[in-house]
């Protein structure tokens, strides 16, 4: 029996401002085992990013508990074991005076530890990851002079450079062209073989069905959690209930089609 990497127990979360309360998550229970590739899907505003921030300890749970490797997220942060691509990563890179290699290298910060400086070995690792994402030629470029998709690949590289055992990816392929998306999923599947746990948020249902082991459908509540085959066999009615509008699942084996 694989041990759970994430255990989410009865989590609810409401964004509280002075003026309004926006409930984002209600009574979520979810368990993700080591080496699983789980896709988290749901319409805009369904709480996917919120759940991820809770898991990563950026937000503190108001109700319920999250365990990471058996330890409560209130006290424990996975830190160096995690590779993370945030949904908004692209937006704040604009105008920042740093090169691609500096940004990707920063992913190694925690692993190196305080007071240590980067070595030749780290720079070799950097080149390896840049190659993996096909951005080696951009190495010395200013991050703010890249295109949207290129920037996104830089952030994926930063998440992979520390060889994480857990990958948390919030819509990592937004703006990336088809060829590089395909390559990206090949990289993910390779990592999966090395039993890296992957939690992926995406709107690309075709990709989910083809690559993920499990699918979790979120819309405030967790409406569905099962294998990708079970997900594929969900009726139109059930999917539409989750998404709140009529919807059908389109997935051809070769031609990945996005339906949301």
């Amino acid at each position: 029996m694989a041990e759970p990497v994430f255990e989410i127990k009865d989590i609810s979360y409401t964004y509280k401002d002075k003026l309004e309360h926006t409930p984002a998550l209600k009574n979520i229970n979810l368990k993700i085992d080591k080496g699983d590739f789980v896709a988290l899907v749901g319409p805009n505003g369904s709480g996917k990013t919120t759940l991820i921030k809770l898991i990563l300890g950026v937000l503190k749970p108001q109700q319920g508990e999250i365990y990471i490797n058996g330890q409560s997220s209130r006290r424990y942060k996975a830190g160096q074991e995690i590779g993370y691509v945030s949904q908004k990563s692209n937006s704040f890179a604009k105008g920042f005076p740093a090169s691609v290699s500096e940004v990707v290298m920063s992913g190694l910060t925690k692993q190196k530890g305080l007071f240590k400086r980067f070595t030749k070995k780290d720079r070799d690792r950097l080149d390896e990851v840049l190659g993996m994402l096909d951005i080696g030629h951009l190495k010395d470029k200013n991050i703010s002079s890249l295109s949207g998709g290129q920037t996104q690949r830089v952030f994926i590289a930063r998440a992979l450079v520390n060889d994480p055992s857990i990958l948390v990816l919030d819509e990592p392929t937004v703006g990336i062209d088809n060829r590089h998306v395909k390559e990206f999923y090949e990289v993910l599947l390779k990592l999966k073989e090395r039993s890296v746990t992957i939690l992926l948020v995406t709107h690309d249902i075709g990709v989910v069905v083809d690559n993920a082991d499990e699918v979790a459908c979120l819309n405030e509540h967790l409406h569905f959690h099962g294998t990708n085959h079970e997900f594929k066999n969900l009726g139109e009615a059930e999917l539409s209930k989750i998404y709140g509008f009529p919807l059908q699942l389109v997935s051809h084996d070769h031609d990945r089609e996005c339906c949301i």
């Binding site: 300890g57 950026v58 830190g79 993370y84 920063s106």
Partner: peptide, 16 residues
């Protein structure tokens, strides 16, 4: 560098 470039990421990675 890390906290200047991306505070949230630094937080996730548990930088002091």
């Amino acid at each position: 560098f890390m906290v200047s470039f991306d505070e949230e990421y630094a937080n996730v990675m548990n930088v002091n």
